[in-house]
Nucleic acid binder design. Sequence first.
DNA 1: GTGCAAGATTGCAGTGACTGCATAAATCGT
DNA 2: ACGATTTATGCAGTCACTGCAATCTTGCAC
Lengths: 199, 199
Amino acid sequence: MIDEPGLRQRKKLQTRTRIEAAALDLFERQGFDGTTVEEIAGAAQIAPRTFFSYFPTKEDVVLADYAGRLERIVEQLGDRPPAETPWAALRASFVVVAADYDTQRRELVRRFRIMADSASVHARSLQLQSGWEDALAAALGARMGDDTESLTSRLLASAALSAMRSSQRHWIATGQTTPLPTLVESCFDQLADGLADLG
Amino acid sequence: MIDEPGLRQRKKLQTRTRIEAAALDLFERQGFDGTTVEEIAGAAQIAPRTFFSYFPTKEDVVLADYAGRLERIVEQLGDRPPAETPWAALRASFVVVAADYDTQRRELVRRFRIMADSASVHARSLQLQSGWEDALAAALGARMGDDTESLTSRLLASAALSAMRSSQRHWIATGQTTPLPTLVESCFDQLADGLADLG
DNA sequence: GTGCAAGATTGCAGTGACTGCATAAATCGT
DNA sequence: ACGATTTATGCAGTCACTGCAATCTTGCAC
């Protein structure tokens, strides 16, 4: 079942990579809003129409690898021992993914910068995260044996993403001086212990 | 300094209301994406071009009163005694606004339904909430005497909005059987006491 | 009231993201 | 090498949104 990647697959991946590279470069030099799909297509040597068979929206080029992360988090969550507390399981799952972030530091910071520059990319990012929240809440609901729309699983999923977002933002703002997993652990722990006495 | 609302102001408000009414009606009948600005303008008896001098985007008609709520929350936050814990101050502020929600129940449920139907309205809502988070984090930072970009104030603001969103969603999903302020209090308390033992 | 300044409405032309459809080109399995 | 399946492309169209200039309405000073 190991697919030798045929020429077709290889070429498609190449093109995709070429589009991403060209787009990110243009975004950095002209700004996201100052760059048209036509320009990206030109720089990537494809027809403008073809762009949209690789990415559903212009924004998604910047957030290309977001989808994969959700899968990894949910996957991690499925691997956690059932005896573990939901919050502990969430914490462990997110820390694993945060470690990946540290690995791809340069690339991610690049994309974050573009996101910070453009309102529409940021909006799209939040929209995707909202989808993650749904998936997480569902996974937690299953884990906790709830059939119904549970307020608790929602709150847990939402709080976890809050911890992640806050950590990311601080990580970027401080020039990645503290490793991201450390920040994530810290945020998760604060939420674990309660916010009552903070500040 | 009490402005007697001149004819000008009154007319403008009327038009705005007429646009909102026409738009919401069309959205409910044809779906958000199935309704064009041209149609809304026609139904509201204005020129299409005029629509955009009342609302910056089509999405904003659905979220028209969002802006006011942030102001009220930040205002409430400013009125809380400085001795109070940040989280306690946040809780109190949000509960006040949640009470307003209960008052305007019918209208809000209408708008929430449209938002649930349309991905772009939902995205826009998240974007606006992100702006609130910035404002809240700044207000908390000031309250706590932080000059710097503080991880803690971010986390508090973000967690507060998570509590609000989760409560709202549950409120809508359960047909508003439990009053919203009660749900909000419950979520804030769970975050205050810590998520470690939940589930 | 009359006239002038400020504000509101409108039309027009344009940009740019995105889509459906039909056709051509490349690649795959046989 | 050949038919089937993908993939690339061109074309025409929709729609949100914008800048600009002209026009009309309201507010206000006199």
